[in-house]
């Protein structure tokens, strides 16, 4: 149980890395989902691709990024390998298909129902969009909760580009893997339970926030 003293730090680090990754991914995933919901031709090709990429093996993303960030790799000069930033970038890429795809489906639904309803009631285009966004927000928030769960629960990227360095890039999942390899199954299970509790409470917190905002 040599991890005991560092568990709170590992938890904070996991929250920070996965939270940042999701926020970062939102910067391009939401505009992308909006774009797809407006351009049906593009959506027909891209949405099935994104749907399929939701389950891409994390270790594959990790390996590709490792080769890019390695000293010998094309992006080696950035010095990102074995830093939390490398994990953040990898997880942001990982959750992009998930956020884009789920948000697209939500937007598509609300635009075709509420948006058009608003238009027939005499709203302007901009107003109709606002209504659609407001109605779609619960779905988007659910998608964010899912993305956070996927990011904090992945192992391959954190191992490959983070390196599981104690006090720097060790997150919940890499700590669990290390405890298993050390034969400390009990503390691995304990860490796993903590991870599940974090993910579930984040999801509940997001739900709560949403209720608060809507009143």
């Amino acid at each position: 149980m040599f991890l005991m003293e560092t568990i709170p730090l590992i938890i904070l680090r996991t929250l920070w890395i996965s939270g940042t990754a999701v926020v970062l991914s939102l910067l391009w995933s939401l505009p992308l989902a909006y774009l797809l919901s407006r351009k049906h031709g593009l959506a027909k090709i891209m949405v099935p691709v994104f749907d399929a990429l939701i389950g891409v093996p994390t270790v594959l993303i990790g390996l590709v990024l490792y080769m890019l960030f390695s000293s010998r790799g094309p992006l080696g000069f950035l010095g990102l390998l074995y830093t939390p930033y490398a994990i953040i970038i990898g997880e942001a890429i990982l959750v992009t298909p998930l956020i884009t795809s789920t948000t697209y489906h939500v937007l598509n639904n609300v635009i075709s129902t509420y948006g058009e309803l608003a238009l027939t009631l005499g709203a302007t285009d901009k107003q109709a969009m606002m209504v659609a966004l407001r109605e779609g927000l619960p779905g988007v928030l659910a998608s964010i909760a899912m993305a956070f769960s996927r990011a904090s629960g992945e192992l391959g990227i954190a191992l490959m580009v983070g390196g599981n360095i104690k006090g720097y890039t060790r997150v919940m999942t890499t700590a669990i893997a290390l405890e298993v390899s050390r034969g400390e199954f009990e503390s691995a299970i304990m860490l796993g339970v903590v991870l599940v509790v974090i993910v579930v409470s984040t999801s509940i917190a997001i739900r709560f926030l949403q209720r608060k905002v809507y009143g």
Binding site: S70, S71, R72, G73, G76, G163, I165, S181
Partner: peptide, 21 residues
Amino acid sequence: VVFDFIPVGSGEALRRAANGD
């Protein structure tokens, strides 16, 4: 000084060394 231990298999450890990592 801080030692950043990267625990991997012997094969991967040497391969990472060859890549300058």
